[in-house]
Design a protein around this nucleic acid. Structure first.
Length: 432
RNA sequence: GGCCCCGUAGCGCAGCUGGUUAGCGCGUCGCCCUGUCACGGCGAAGGCCGCGGGUUCGAGUCCCGUCGGGGUCGCCA
C-alpha cells in the first residue's frame, strides 16, 4: 500500500512532477457541479482538495456523505486555482465505513453557528470543527510548555492518587465514592501529595484532573478540571515560587508560538507576552485599586476585572500577581507573612482579569502544622500521613496550581469555560 | 443555591396588544449547472411551538408548576 500523505504535505509537490499519493481522512465537504465534483478531505494536518471527473467516482461522491472516512489515491497536480496550489486529480476513492450520518452542525463552515448546548451535547462530532480543534491544540501546547520548562529546571513529574481517604482541604466540597465498602473521595487537589513529593524529590509537578463538588454554576467553574501543579523546596519565600510561575507561563507561551501558529492564526489569538518580572501588588493595595472596602477578605470577580484593567494600563501586563492574602482566608498550610501574620505569603495570579493561579509558601515545621490545625479546631488524626512528612525534615517550600481550562478560555477570549473543555463536567452534565 | 432572561424543524432564528393552514436562512433530499472553494439555480420533505395544568369561544402567544438552557452573584483554579 502506498504510504500516507498528509494534507499539509501536499504543498511540497508544487514544483514536483505529478506523483501518485494516498490521502486518508474525512470528507469535509463535497461541492458537486454538473460534470465534476470537488471533495475536500480533512485529516489531522488540515484539508486538501480532490477533483473528481470520472462518472463512476462521481457516483461514489454522490453516495458518500460529509464526515465519512475515506482513502483517496490519485495524482498530485499543481494548479493555481487549487487551495494551497496543489490538488489531487483522477482519484480512486474507497470509503472506510458506511456513509456517515448527517452531522448535527455544519462542520465545513469556517464559523459554525451552533450554540453551547448543541456543541456540548454532540461533542464527539462538534470537536471536529477546525476552530474547536485549534482551541484544544492551544491547551495541548500549553501543557507541553509547562512540562518542558519544569523538566529543564530539574523538576520531577509525578502522578498522585485521585481516590483519597479524607476530604483534605477545607472550603470546597468533595465527591464521595464507594471504595470497596469504605467511604472515599475524589481528590480536590494534589496539594498534600505534592508536598510529600517535595520531601522526596525537592521539586515536583503534576498535570492531572481535580474534582470540585461545589454547586457553582458559572462560566468559569467545572466539577472536573485539569490542574497544572508545581511544588518546590528550599525557597526563601513565595517570591521564589512566583519566579518559577513566571518561567512556566513564559514556557507555555513559547510552546504555543512554536507548535500552534496555525491555531493562533485561525482563531486570531492574542498571545500574551510574559513580562520578565510579573507585576506584584499586595492584597491591601489590590482592594484599594479595585475600590473595595479595606476589610474585604477576598477579591470578587468584579474586583478582579478592575485589577486586570489596571495591570494593563499601569504595567502593560496581562498578568498581575496579588500577594499577601489574609491568612484566615487561606488554607491551614499557608505560611504567614513574617512581619505581619494577619497576611500570608500566598498569592493569586490574575490573567486578563480572571483568577488563574493560586500559590504561595507553605508551612514546613511540624509544630507550625499542629498549631495551625489546632487553632482552626481541626483534629490531627485525619492528617496523620500528611503530617508524617513534616516530622522527618522538610525544607521551606511552596508551589502553585494553574487551571488549564481557565488559561485556554482567557487565551481565546471564550465567554464560557466549557467552550474550551473537551468533555466538561458540571452541575448538570455527566455525558458525553 | 438566590435573582434575571430564554425553550418554536437537524442548526441559527422570526412569530406584534391571543384569532383560521406556524414562517425565514442554512442544512437534508430530488432535478439542473466542467473550476468550485461558506459554489450557484429550481423544487420538495421536515414541527406534540420542552412537559403538565389553568384562563378563554379560541393559546406558540396570558397565568401557575415542572424540566432543560443562558447570564449574574456567592465561592473558586
Amino acid at each position: 500500500m502506498l504510504p500516507r500523505t498528509l494534507a499539509s504535505d501536499l504543498s511540497s509537490y508544487v514544483d514536483a512532477p505529478p506523483t501518485r499519493v494516498r490521502l486518508s481522512g474525512w470528507i469535509h465537504r463535497r461541492r458537486r457541479l454538473s460534470g465534476l465534483a470537488f471533495v475536500v478531505i480533512r485529516d489531522r494536518s488540515g484539508t486538501a482538495q480532490v477533483v473528481v471527473k470520472d462518472p463512476a467516482v462521481l457516483a461514489q461522491v454522490d453516495a458518500l456523505t460529509e464526515e465519512t472516512t475515506v482513502d483517496v489515491v490519485g495524482m498530485t497536480s499543481s494548479n493555481p486555482q487549487a487551495p494551497g496550489g496543489v490538488e489531487i486529480i483522477d482519484p480512486a476513492l474507497s470509503a472506510l465505513t458506511a456513509a456517515a450520518a448527517t452531522s448535527p452542525i455544519e462542520l465545513w463552515r469556517p464559523n459554525h453557528q451552533a450554540g453551547l448546548k448543541t456543541m456540548l451535547d454532540h461533542a464527539p462530532v462538534t470537536w471536529r470543527h477546525p476552530r474547536q480543534q485549534a482551541t484544544w491544540q492551544l491547551a495541548a501546547a500549553s501543557m507541553h510548555g509547562f512540562r518542558r520548562t519544569l523538566e529543564s529546571q530539574s523538576f520531577t513529574e509525578i502522578q498522585t492518587p485521585k481516590l483519597v481517604e479524607s476530604a483534605t482541604e477545607s472550603g470546597s466540597n468533595v465527591f464521595g465514592v464507594d471504595y470497596f465498602g469504605q467511604r472515599a473521595y475524589l481528590a480536590q487537589s494534589p496539594q498534600f501529595y505534592k508536598q510529600m513529593g517535595v520531601g522526596i524529590f525537592e521539586r515536583v509537578f503534576e498535570v492531572g484532573p481535580v474534582f470540585r463538588a461545589e454547586p457553582h454554576d458559572t462560566v468559569r467553574h467545572l466539577a472536573e478540571y485539569v490542574s497544572l501543579d508545581v511544588e518546590m523546596g528550599f525557597i526563601a519565600d513565595h517570591r521564589d515560587v512566583a519566579a518559577t510561575l513566571r518561567d512556566v507561563l513564559a514556557g507555555m507561551v513559547e510552546s504555543i508560538h512554536e507548535r500552534t501558529s496555525s491555531a493562533v492564526e485561525l482563531l486570531g489569538v492574542d498571545v500574551p507576552t510574559v513580562p520578565a518580572e510579573l507585576p506584584v501588588i499586595h492584597f491591601r493595595e489590590a482592594l484599594e485599586i479595585a475600590g473595595a472596602p479595606s476589610d474585604e477578605p477576598d477579591l470578587a470577580p468584579a474586583h478582579e476585572r478592575a485589577l486586570g484593567a489596571w495591570a494593563r494600563e499601569q504595567h502593560g501586563s496581562d498578568f498581575l500577581l496579588v500577594e499577601g492574602y489574609p491568612l484566615a482566608k487561606r488554607a491551614f498550610y499557608t505560611h504567614p507573612q513574617p512581619d505581619d501574620p494577619r497576611w500570608s505569603n500566598s498569592f493569586d495570579l490574575l490573567f486578563r482579569g480572571l483568577e488563574l493561579v493560586t500559590g504561595g509558601q507553605r508551612l514546613h515545621r511540624y509544630d507550625d502544622y499542629v498549631a495551625a490545625l489546632t487553632q482552626r479546631g481541626e483534629a490531627l488524626a485525619p492528617y496523620e500521613s500528611y503530617l508524617q512528612t513534616f516530622r522527618h525534615g522538610m525544607p521551606p517550600h511552596g508551589g502553585f496550581a494553574i487551571g488549564l481550562e481557565r488559561w485556554t478560555a482567557r487565551l481565546v477570549a471564550a465567554e464560557n469555560i466549557r467552550e474550551v473543555t473537551l468533555f466538561p463536567r458540571d452541575l448538570h452534565r455527566l455525558a458525553p
